[in-house]
Design a protein around this nucleic acid. Structure first.
Lengths: 385, 385
DNA sequence: CTGAAAGCGCTTACAG
DNA sequence: CTGAAAGCGCTTACAG
């Protein structure tokens, strides 16, 4: 396993290191025969250039792309990453994985990226931190692409999905099914994606000639507890809605639970629509009708944007918005002909909600609000022993 | 953003590059005052050493750990990765992410790893490819740790979960609930994890004085279709079981579907237990009782093993088997007092199963058996201690 | 305890 | 078209 270097190849091919370097980099001015010889020797000896040396020699351009993700447990992030990897794999770049779970980690990550000149570009998934450090890096010439940004928007190149159109299609679907009283259980109102989802909701209603009823709009924080509470409240209140649109799938699950807890049935009494289409949404009962975000495609798109920024002179920042798609399943049905009374009023709401909230999905979603993400569980890195 | 180098720091601190390097590496023989001065200058200028140069200078040891994963979409892999990242983050290493989706990608990955001297160590998740390339790398001195290996087993250091104990606890739970006729819907019989799960099943029954009924053991391939088919067959057959243990959760979902399709109820008529505890298992209806594999902890454990192999002289390969835990939910209940007749026999099995199989979760989990496995036999070593 | 020097494996002008 | 030389930013013996 003695490492074979450029010097070895040069010697064995009877040329200089310079020449080997030229063929290595596919430069034009090399005699075809020489090139062939060198390539043959490289193949014979299974030569692969040292990445570190390559990076050092090329004063600048490293062969790495940094990928900052907020913790890999969120399934949405996993999908995005898959899209990214499928594109980067086909390039000469390698992915360096940074995970940040909070502000502190995040600044550490940026420090490392900043100082080490390690990466040529940066992909940032589900960013929900202060934007300044990234803007600074970008301003200093480091290509950056944001994917599915939460929180504040910026001028940095970005890939998002179309929250507005997605929400609008969800509500349009309910309208087609005959619903007129449609509630909206919202995520954090300061998040742009939620602003857009809410606008899609109100525009769809307005377009159908339905007045907006403020009582049907319930702001929250992507927390299933909130969704649960709002749902119980909506169902027990006067003139209850016949359909509920939730701003993400985990919240929609909480809506389903709340409807169940009140003794009503989905979709016979109440229709429910979510947003994201995380994998489990096809498997809850009833299977959830929801707005699919194209996470893999978003990752791939962002990777391609970054690669092209790395190879050509990059133009102005692009903001790509990808289309969503309505996944129609069983949780939304025709508006009920008659309204059943709420069979039971959850006597002890706290009790009813208690055990469910200890569940991994619920708790971690509550502690890490984001659009559509569905953390897999609480972390305990206790290896045992 | 002019990159500040070790030379700059040396000049500004009034010392030589050598000295800066010494404090950089925490070497002892440096005057405390000098050290303080250098550190201060580094802090003032936000100095971070170039990783490439560091790697080159240290003839050998690169600051990278390779992480080979079979595609990030599998939820299990996401959990494992999170555990890995949480440990590696705290070290001086960075993670380079390689994804392989098939044999071809895999050999490409190994080539890159092999040649470039890029990584100091390798973490391999859910390995299900020929083992030779990895054995060769390991033999050549590259530290490798396998996590949750599928397929064939090797002498390489590894972290698994305890399939045998997990299966045994699942069946013991059913026995406690009064069940006597317990079926087992298996994964691929050649996979060590399935061998162990089946052994846990048979040992639990034998220990309870129950004879093994070969008709209740149904081999398959981690494919939900098989689980579905077997379940229908078991339910419609004579002397049907009162409980079914499935070798992984997606198969358990298919069991739930099949029971539902036959008009029986879980857990009133049939109890169901799975294996894995993937996130959605808490959200199917009824919530699935299943054996939880500690994926995050497994990832963390493996990362720690690799780091220690990188810093100390590594001893003989260790094989760590981590304990599972039974997640008790609603899909398993007391054995029914009386046996209802099967209300309906699925008229067209093909039709019934068709649409479900097009679902993403089913197909991807079916084509990618993602479960833990045990070293066949006796390689057991207790987790670090 | 500290500095001068050589070297890691590559790239890049610069000559020829 | 090709080679000799200098340099990338760090580390590591080796002197002192």
């Amino acid at each position: 396993m003695a490492k074979v270097t450029i010097r070895d190849i040069a010697r064995l091919a009877g040329v200089s290191k310079s020449t080997v370097s030229l063929v290595l980099n596919g430069r034009p001015r090399v005699d075809p025969e020489t090139r062939a010889k060198v390539l043959q020797v490289m193949a014979e000896h299974n030569y692969v250039p040292s990445v570190a040396a390559t990076a050092l020699g090329k004063r600048g351009g490293s062969p790495f792309i940094g990928l900052i993700v907020p913790g890999l447990t969120w399934r949405i992030v996993a999908s995005i990453n898959y899209g990214i990897a499928s594109v980067v794999e086909r390039s000469k770049y390698e992915i360096i994985l940074y995970t940040s779970t909070n502000d502190r980690d995040y600044s550490g990550v940026v420090d490392r990226v900043l100082g080490a000149n390690l990466v040529s570009g940066l992909l940032v998934v589900n960013h929900n931190q202060p934007m300044e450090p990234l803007v600074e890096l970008y301003g200093a010439g480091l290509p950056v692409v944001l994917i599915n940004t939460l929180g504040v928007h910026s001028d940095l190149p970005s890939v998002e999905s179309d929250s507005y159109a997605g929400a609008r299609s969800a509500v349009a679907h309910l309208l087609e099914l005959g619903h007129r009283r449609i509630a909206c259980v919202q995520g954090p109102p300061q998040f742009p994606c939620c602003v857009n989802r809410n606008k899609g909701y109100t525009d769809a209603l307005t377009h159908a000639g339905i007045a907006i009823d403020a009582d049907l709009i319930r702001p929250g924080g992507f927390r299933p507890q909130d969704a649960y509470r709002h749902t119980v409240d909506l169902l027990c209140g006067p003139d209850r809605p016949t359909a509920i649109f939730a701003h993400n799938d985990p919240m929609a699950y909480a809506v389903l639970d709340a409807v169940d807890e009140c003794g009503l049935r989905v979709p016979d009494d109440i229709s429910v629509v979510g947003f994201d289409d995380i994998v489990s949404s096809a498997h809850v009962r009833p299977p959830l009708t929801t707005v699919r975000q194209p996470f893999e495609e978003m990752g791939a798109q962002a990777a391609e944007m970054l690669l092209s920024a790395l190879s050509y002179e990059s133009g102005p920042p692009r903001h790509v918005r990808m289309p969503t798609e309505l996944a129609i399943r069983a949780s939304a049905g025709p508006v009920p002909r008659r309204r059943r009374r709420v069979p039971k009023q959850p006597a002890d709401l706290h009790h009813a909600i208690g055990p469910k909230l200890t569940d991994a999905m619920y708790t971690s979603d509550a502690s890490s609000p984001s659009t559509g993400l569905d953390p897999a569980g609480t972390l305990s890195t206790k290896p045992s022993g």
